[in-house]
């Protein structure tokens, strides 16, 4: 079955068809979530949530659109939600967060993966990170990013330029 057939079957509620449809895009989704969240386990959780959300709302998917971009858009929104919740949590429980989260030290298994990845990307604000992840890693246009993040195309272009400049500085400082 080609992608169109899989989409048609999945829209009728066929879980296997949906699994077949997403199997080719899971790694892309996980990579996006990892780049945005900076940690493997959290990225896997966010990606799974995005897949579930996509499956539950798949009847509303417009078959004329690109499936992978629709799926990645959901993933980006899920990651932004998580980052917002985390920021709120840290703001409220600033003093105790370190103790509860293991004094801010990353878990050993997370270190190996995220040492190379994300360390510099994580220094960007959440929306800039989302914009740069979608633009550079997923080839989203400014208009598509704007639609995903719910802001104007101009804002996205400014986010992208700011992110590039900040990353350049971070790379230069790291050398």
């Amino acid at each position: 079955m080609d992608e169109r057939d899989l989409i048609r079957c999945a829209q009728l509620g066929d879980r296997d068809a949906f699994a077949g449809l997403v199997s080719g895009h899971e790694k892309k989704l996980l990579a996006l979530c990892w780049n945005m969240l900076g940690e493997r386990e959290e990225a896997r959780d966010a990606a799974q949530e995005a897949l579930l959300q996509a499956f539950e709302n798949f009847s509303r998917f417009d078959a004329g659109r690109s499936f992978v971009k629709w799926l990645l858009g959901i993933g980006a929104k899920r990651c932004l939600d998580r980052l917002r919740r985390k920021r709120t949590f840290l703001r409220i429980f600033q003093g105790h967060a370190g103790e509860w989260l293991g004094r801010g030290e990353p878990r050993p298994e997370a270190v190996a993966g995220s040492e190379r990845v994300g360390r510099l990307l994580l220094k960007l604000p959440a929306r800039e990170r989302a914009a740069i992840s979608l633009a550079v890693f997923e080839d989203f246009s400014a208009r598509e990013i704007a639609a995903t993040l719910g802001c104007s195309e101009n804002t996205v272009r400014v986010h992208l330029f700011n992110a590039r400049v900040k990353l350049k500085k971070e790379v230069a400082d790291g050398l």
Binding site: F18, A19, V22, S23, E26, K27, K28, L29, L30, A31, W34, N35, R44, A47, Q48, L51, F55, V117, G118, R119, L120, L121, S133, V136, F137, L167, V171
Partner: peptide, 17 residues
């Protein structure tokens, strides 16, 4: 791209769905 994760880095990851 060299700063982040790409799908090629995730070949050993288990299926998510």
């Amino acid at each position: 791209r060299s700063l982040g994760v790409t799908p090629a880095d995730l070949q050993n990851e288990l299926s998510l769905f």
